[in-house]
């Protein structure tokens, strides 16, 4: 089974683009997209359409947009990092909001890393190759149930 990167972003076109870039980079990582915090929680708790844990395993890394509808990415980050059960799941912020204040706020709420959304196929592919290699191959996670 491929390792899963959970992409939490309501921008469908960017998400499709990222999926293609990850596939083209040759990474043994599968991108699964959800478009809201509620759906992301359903995924993590294997509820509703994500009930089958064998098809929806715990992600090796979550890429989280900050500008999400209803609940913001930063509020979701706070919620995750306050729960011990998610402490070992890397949350990488992927945002177009690159102000120092936004980035610092993300780190101060224990984002594992922050990335700026790239422009263009080659830059996106290069970034996704680095993300999948680093978080999928080298970063070590606590023991997992799956």
């Amino acid at each position: 089974m491929n390792k899963v990167m959970l992409l939490v972003d309501d921008d469908d076109s960017l998400s499709k683009f990222i999926k293609i870039c990850v596939e083209e980079s040759g990474a043994l990582m599968e991108v699964k997209q959800v478009t809201s915090v509620d759906k992301a929680m359903d995924y993590l708790q294997n509820k509703g359409e994500f009930a089958d844990k064998s098809r929806n395993p715990d992600p090796y890394v979550m890429l989280l947009d900050l500008g999400l509808p209803k609940t913001s990415g930063i509020d979701f980050l706070k919620r995750l990092k306050n729960k011990k059960e998610y402490a070992g799941m890397p949350v990488v912020i992927l945002t177009a909001m690159e102000s120092t204040e936004n980035i610092r706020n993300a780190y101060c709420n224990y984002a594992n890393s922050c990335l700026i959304k790239p422009f263009g196929f080659e830059k996106t592919k290069e970034l996704m190759k680095s993300v999948t290699t680093y978080w999928g191959r080298y970063n070590r996670l606590p023991d997992r149930a799956d």
Partner: peptide, 18 residues
């Protein structure tokens, strides 16, 4: 190999707060 990837990820890709 691991350190090269680590350097590239954290120094070139990751956005720092300052």
């Amino acid at each position: 190999s691991m350190l090269q990837e680590t350097g590239f990820y954290w120094l070139a890709c990751n956005k720092r707060a300052y």
